[in-house]
Design a protein around this nucleic acid. Sequence first.
DNA 1: TTATCTTTACGTCAAAAGTACGTAAAGGTG
DNA 2: CACCTTTACGTACTTTTGACGTAAAGATAA
Lengths: 243, 243
Amino acid sequence: MMDYNQPTKNFQKEVAEQCIRYLSIDGVIFGFHQNQLNVLLLRWKGTNEWCLPGGFIRKTESVDEAAERVMQERTGLNELFLQQFHVFGAVVRYDQDAVWRKINLNVDADSWSERTISIGYYALVEHSKVVPTPDFLTEECRWWPLDEVPGLLFDHNHIIEVATRALRRQLNDQPISHLLPESFTIPELQRLHETILGHPLDARNFYKKMMASGTLERLTERRAGTPHKAPYLYRFTRSESQA
Amino acid sequence: MMDYNQPTKNFQKEVAEQCIRYLSIDGVIFGFHQNQLNVLLLRWKGTNEWCLPGGFIRKTESVDEAAERVMQERTGLNELFLQQFHVFGAVVRYDQDAVWRKINLNVDADSWSERTISIGYYALVEHSKVVPTPDFLTEECRWWPLDEVPGLLFDHNHIIEVATRALRRQLNDQPISHLLPESFTIPELQRLHETILGHPLDARNFYKKMMASGTLERLTERRAGTPHKAPYLYRFTRSESQA
DNA sequence: TTATCTTTACGTCAAAAGTACGTAAAGGTG
DNA sequence: CACCTTTACGTACTTTTGACGTAAAGATAA
């Protein structure tokens, strides 16, 4: 069992034994809530410093499995849509000394302060279903609106930027369904697209385009409780591979 | 200096000391010749087995630099268009025993038969400028037409497939210029597009589309020596980021 | 009760992009 | 020099995209 009084030491030992050195996973977990894109961040133990969820790859698991495991642990979700989007492989990715100081880590220079190559994954999840769960190096896990994300540890702001660009590109190719609940209204879907693309869309044209795409199925129910005309609920027809 | 009588042993030692274990680069170098897409392959020393160019990442270089170095060594080119396209991270990527037998390698089980995660890059190069150069594990380096590629070592056939799909996707987004010489005719460009896409295009419509793209500049010369009407030469106006 | 306002769920129309196909001129070959 | 292929255009039609119109639904205010 992990000795939580000496987490760092044990962690280093575990990584060295079970995991592939130099190589890690960083995950950008996107959620959509109150018409905003959110990402799940972790606060480092005993500090006010935030970072992305991540982890090392065990020698016995595939890279995809490692990403899935890490994301599952932080979200409590069994299934999630995951996409590999970039390898961050610069020799100096960030100011290591500055980061070690920020997180009060006394580093064993031989084993821990070496460069790390990181494989970036993004996940699209249903915001309301996530149970944010810190890992043993962090003491808080919560959603941050994408445009309020603070200065993060490591090069994690940069990773979020690249992930966001990749997500935007994906939106052009295929419908993005995993960020919304099973059923949703067209205006809600429009807000999602607007948020990802970063600019407003014409409601009439958006409606037309979605109808023409053939990926949506109208339900008989409508969304009640709105101050105006009750919109129909829709769901994606999960035929092909979708996001 | 490398001892070429004991290449494998020294290679293993070098890798262990200078390079990042478990992690390698695999490169799919595309060229275009005689209306066919070609890839550069290497024949393993003393065998009739072919594989992709590749190599390990040195501790002192970035992943991109490693890819560039490996590709430069195999092609003799200083500048080449490189694109990271996928990480191959399965625990078992191919039948290791079978491969070791094929290449007559006696493997030190502790250090060399471990899994390797590979970062896939593809390169687009001007076919005629390449000087195919084997590395010290191989004794032949040459172009293979994409549709005549034999069964390769490791999972390299799979990697080529994924790279080809990525290249096809890229063609939709941006013009692909690096596969052609500085100046070329529209029909030559059309053959390239047809080859990448895998289906014929209408010459009239292709011409119109290319003219409308605004990325081409017509030269005053024409291509002489053709049995028919001499076509104009064009070149890409290298304004934005192009492939 | 009824006018008003916002939102939804459609529709219209024109510009732009994509697709099918026509053709004259260029440059060989028999 | 007739003939054939290829280039370098052009025309016409269809599909997609984008700007904008509007009636019905549902709440709120007078």
